[in-house]
Write a protein that binds this DNA or RNA. Sequence first.
DNA 1: CCTTATTGACTACAAACGTAGTTGTTGACT
DNA 2: AGTCAACAACTACGTTTGTAGTCAATAAGG
Lengths: 122, 122
Amino acid sequence: MAERISDAEHAVMEVLWRRAPLTATEVSNALSGDRDWSLQTVKTLLGRLLGKNVIAHEEDGRRYLYRPLVAREEYVAGESQRLVDRLFGGKVTPLVAHLAETQQLSDKDIAEIEALLKALKS
Amino acid sequence: MAERISDAEHAVMEVLWRRAPLTATEVSNALSGDRDWSLQTVKTLLGRLLGKNVIAHEEDGRRYLYRPLVAREEYVAGESQRLVDRLFGGKVTPLVAHLAETQQLSDKDIAEIEALLKALKS
DNA sequence: CCTTATTGACTACAAACGTAGTTGTTGACT
DNA sequence: AGTCAACAACTACGTTTGTAGTCAATAAGG
C-alpha cells in the first residue's frame, strides 16, 4: 500500500478533497486556472490515481463520478513524515527550529503556536 | 537555477554534505549499508548531479573529487518551503499545528520549541 | 433518423529516474 | 613487458511522469 502520488496527480487530489464526487469534466474545470491541462490529461491522471487505489469511481449513467479513497489528512501526514525523516532525522523539533528561523513569523503566529503547545502539555 | 534533486540523488548529496571532497568510490562506500547500489550507479548519480550543477568535481590525478555546490541548508529550506506551499497554503503555523497534533512530542520537546519561540519574540 | 458533442478506453511519446553494463585508458604489480 | 585493477566516458533499458491524441459508443438535439 501507500502508493506514491505524483505532483500532477496531487493537484487532482486537491480538487477531489475539496469537493467530491465529481466527473472528469468537473475536475478539469476546477483545475483550469491553476494548471493548464487538457481534459484528456486530467482523465489520464484520474486513471492513474485509480490504478494507485487512492481514488474510486462509481458509474453515473454514462460517466463516472470520482471520489478520494484516502483522506487528505492521511496524505498530509505521510508527506510531512517523509520530510521529517529525510531531512531532519525523524525529529520534529529540528524542523520546527528550522521553520522558526527561516520563516518570518509574526508575533501573532508565535503566540498561536505557543497556545497550541500549551494545550498539548499534560 | 534550482535544479530538482531526485530521491536517489539526494542520498548521494547527504554523503557529500557530511564530508567532501570525496571520490566516487568513497561516496559509494559511504552509501553501502543504506542503499545497495553498485559503484556504477553511484557514478551515474554523480554525473547527473554534475549536470544539474549542484555539485562540482576537480581532478585529482586520474580520478575526480566531488564536492557540493549547494549547501544542505539551502536544500532543506527549499524542500521545506515546497511542503509548506503544497500542503499548508504557504503558512507555517498550520504545519506546526499538524506536527504538534500527529507527532508525539515529549514535554521536553515542547519546552524546547517554546524556548525557541521565546527567543524569536521581538 | 442523422449529426454532433460528450465520454470512457486505449495508445503515444518524450523526459526524468532508478539501476546498471561496456569500453577504453592508465597506473601498479609481477 | 604483460596483466590486472581502477577509473571516467558512454550506452542501456525498464518505469514513472507530464502531457496529450485517437477511437468508438452513446446521449442529445434538430
